[in-house]
Design a binder for these strands. Structure first.
Lengths: 193, 193
DNA sequence: CAGCTATGGTAACAGTGTCAACATTGCCCC
DNA sequence: GGGGCAATGTTGACACTGTTACCATAGCTG
């Protein structure tokens, strides 16, 4: 997504596509600042519009944040899907998508936090109906020998490891070390077979 | 900690022990409201003091939050230690402290978030020099057969699972189901031996 | 072209963190 | 015991925030 729309040169009274301009500005802001420092007025200023114009497109700040989070989910999903695509049938597909999850989080800290702080049901969005999700589910089923409950458990365990590692690294509790990611997310040592 | 100090009945100009009163009020506020809704002025109002009196004891809001986080670390550490105490020598000491970690997080959501969002180096505080920590390290060493690097990896993996599960449950991504905690944090299925 | 509706702007309000200047108090030392 | 000083608390103000009520513009539709 992120249709840049940097063409409001016509400086007319109406902006043209304020909504996506705000979302884009928000995403850009989140690249270099934490969520708490994201202000509606600053965004409006950035886009060259009055503070209250935002309210023609979002009922409140929460709604804008939700829109940003939706973009984040989309991007994370695509990133995971891309990571999984290269490893079809590979026995390490599970690990590959997990490492992609963590790397995306480290690359987009504020957006990652926003996604999980703002959205309910991210799980279905990520583990839902897409390539990466089906790969994971298949692999989980194989790993536990066709036991559905066991596969469910394995999925949650995997999600927890990956999410926890990302969070601990984002919060500075663990070094953001690429090699550490590989060492921790290693299906050979992580889960009992 | 949490020395209640509810004895400012003398209504003198000076409060007596404003600092701990503010910390206590902050901890109480975090029991029923998220961090973003915690305001210096509200806290001062609660304690019966002018907004700027806070600045005689904390250089800024960040410092107050840090003090609250320190209390949180203390409490979490004690809770873990208590959980580990009952399982000395037990083969499930590892799992027991992990489940305690998650349960404490669910019981103190805002404080848990504050601890990990505010403090650097929580790891050393928790895995440092205390009963729970030594239990964990011993158990990790035994599990991997005396290999120090392997034990380190196991510790990080365990922390990640536990932290991730707590976060996902706090953020509503997974149901806050007690049975689910037990199912996920199960050393028999979690780590390869 | 008239007018309605979508979109944008102005002014204002309550609330926030923070600073500078002033007030009060408890305590130490002569 | 009294003087003075440092610790502690207060007042007033500033810049900023999200949000609302009301007004202005402009683009589409009849």
């Amino acid at each position: 997504m992120v249709t840049v729309s940097t063409l409001p040169q016509t400086r007319s009274y109406h902006h043209g596509d304020l909504r996506t301009a705000l979302v884009d500005a928000g995403l850009k802001a989140l690249e270099s600042a934490p969520i708490e420092e994201l202000s509606l007025r600053a965004l409006a200023r950035e886009v060259g519009v009055s503070p209250t114009a935002v309210y023609r497109h979002f009922p409140d700040k929460q709604a804008l944040l939700a829109a940003l989070a939706a973009e984040g989910i989309e991007q994370l999903g695509q990133y995971q899907q891309a990571a999984a695509a290269g490893t079809e049938g590979n026995s390490d597909a599970f690990g590959a998508t997990g490492r992609a999850y963590v790397r995306w989080a480290l690359a987009n800290p504020a957006l990652f936090r926003l996604v999980f702080g703002q959205c309910r049901d991210v799980g279905p969005s990520i583990f839902g109906d897409n390539l990466a999700a089906r790969l994971l589910q298949d692999r989980a089923l194989h790993a536990v020998g066709g036991d559905a409950a066991g596969a469910q458990r394995l999925m949650v365990q995997a999600w927890a490891v990956v999410h926890g590692l990302a969070m601990l690294m984002l919060d500075g509790q663990l070094p953001q070390d690429d090699a550490l990611i590989d060492r921790v997310i290693d299906p050979r040592t992580l889960f009992a077979r």
